[in-house]
Amino acid sequence: MTTTAENFRTVYGKPPAGVWAAPGRVNLIGEYTDFNDGFVMPFALPHCTRVAAAPRTDGRLRLYSRDAQGGVTEEPRGWAAYPAGVAWALREAGLPVGGADVYVESDVPVGAGLSSSAALEVATALALTELYDAGLPGPELARLAQRAENAFVGVPCGIMDQMASACCRAGHALHLDTRDLSMRQIPLALEQWGLRLLVIDTRVKHELGDGAYAARRAGCESAARRLGVRALREVACGELQAALGELPAAERALVRHVVTENDRVERVAALLAAGDARAVGPLLTEGHASLRDDFRVSCAELDVVVETAVKAGALGARMTGGGFGGSAIALVDGADEERVTKAVTEALGTARVFGTAAGEGARRVA
């Protein structure tokens, strides 16, 4: 098997100056809270996007993806908008980033809700800043990658995915406060407790989800304004019922999910810190019910795999990512992994199931 550096040489006829990698992520708990200044707890996947790059003196950005059809491009369209947007965001921030030849390859599943776009953004940002000796700390790298997706690509995403890709540590989940980007690395060595985390990629995507993110974000922001708070993270669980009484029906369910989900993140963090990982399972299932019933971002396929996994013995399961397809996760005893996997794949023929562990964040690999 050829290396990323060798593939770069084949495309561009010269060696790269280096190879950088950034992972996809699984969000253990804390969904649709990041744009509400809330709490999230992702961890990095072993699956990565790798970027090989070499500087150019003419300021041009040439891009090639092993996984996309077509040859070298300078057009910021489709997949190429993400690395092009990163270059734009870095330059707009005043960083001395010039031109580059960039080669991209990835084993992060696309469309699975595992943040393949953030992995591409962060790997590109790390490559370009190191090429031009403009290295940035992980949180700032993530902020600029998010800006590229928001302002250049036009996707109003929160900061979680980029922070996870840039800042996660192997064997840990990242407890992140998305308001001030303060973070704690919480041990997530599930194998020490005899547990496994399964990722269940439904391999389906419903078109209904295309505008759902923006619509729900707008609903949450409207509710915050009605409640007189900067963001919904300021509404405590003890204040929830009173807050719901001040809102129109269309916004109550959104607020209920965000407030209770923030609480679930804090409870999961406390359980993991105490070494009681098994007790995390029911909170995952509770979170799925909230995403299904209150935020209404699940779909039939996700509901089937979550319900099937729990019935087959999983300690808990929930959708992860934006919903309307994509992936779910299931926390299982190691001895039950095969049984749960079999039940899920029989219930949903398209499903692809793999066990995973918390991987390393963005770094230079060659």
Rank of each mutant, 00 (worst) to 15 (best):
C299Y: 03
T285F: 15
V305K: 04
L291E: 03
L315I: 12
A317H: 04
R278A: 15
G316F: 04
A270W: 04
R292E: 13
V297H: 06
D263A: 15
L315P: 08
A270Q: 14
A277T: 00
V297L: 03
R267Y: 00
R292L: 05
E286F: 03
K311Y: 08
G316K: 02
E286G: 05
E307N: 12
S290H: 09
L283A: 05
A312S: 04
R264D: 07
V310S: 04
G281E: 06
S298K: 11
P282K: 09
V297T: 12
L271I: 00
N262E: 10
H288F: 08
D303K: 00
A270P: 01
G275L: 11
A270I: 02
V305Q: 08
E266C: 09
E261Y: 06
L315D: 11
D293H: 13
A279D: 05
D276L: 14
A314Y: 11
V305S: 00
V280F: 09
S290D: 04
L302R: 00
L315T: 14
E266H: 14
D263C: 13
E266V: 08
C299F: 03
N262C: 06
T285M: 13
R296E: 13
R278V: 15
L272K: 15
L284K: 01
E261F: 06
L272M: 14
G313C: 10
L302F: 01
A273S: 14
V305E: 02
A289C: 02
E301T: 10
S298H: 07
C299Q: 02
L315R: 11
T285V: 11
N262T: 07
R278S: 10
C299D: 00
E266G: 11
A273Q: 15
T308F: 11
R264P: 04
E286W: 05
A279C: 02
V297R: 07
G287M: 02
V280Y: 09
V310F: 08
G316L: 06
G287A: 15
T308V: 05
G313Q: 02
G316V: 12
N262G: 12
R267M: 00
T308D: 01
A270R: 15
A274F: 11
V310T: 09
E301N: 11
L291G: 09
R296Y: 05
L271Y: 02
L283E: 09
V265Y: 08
A312H: 04
P282T: 13
G316N: 04
A270Y: 08
K311P: 05
E266R: 14
A289P: 03
A309E: 08
D294K: 05
D294Y: 13
R267G: 05
E307Q: 14
D294Q: 12
L302N: 00
E286Y: 07
H288G: 12
P282F: 07
D303C: 01
V265G: 00
L291Q: 02
V310L: 03
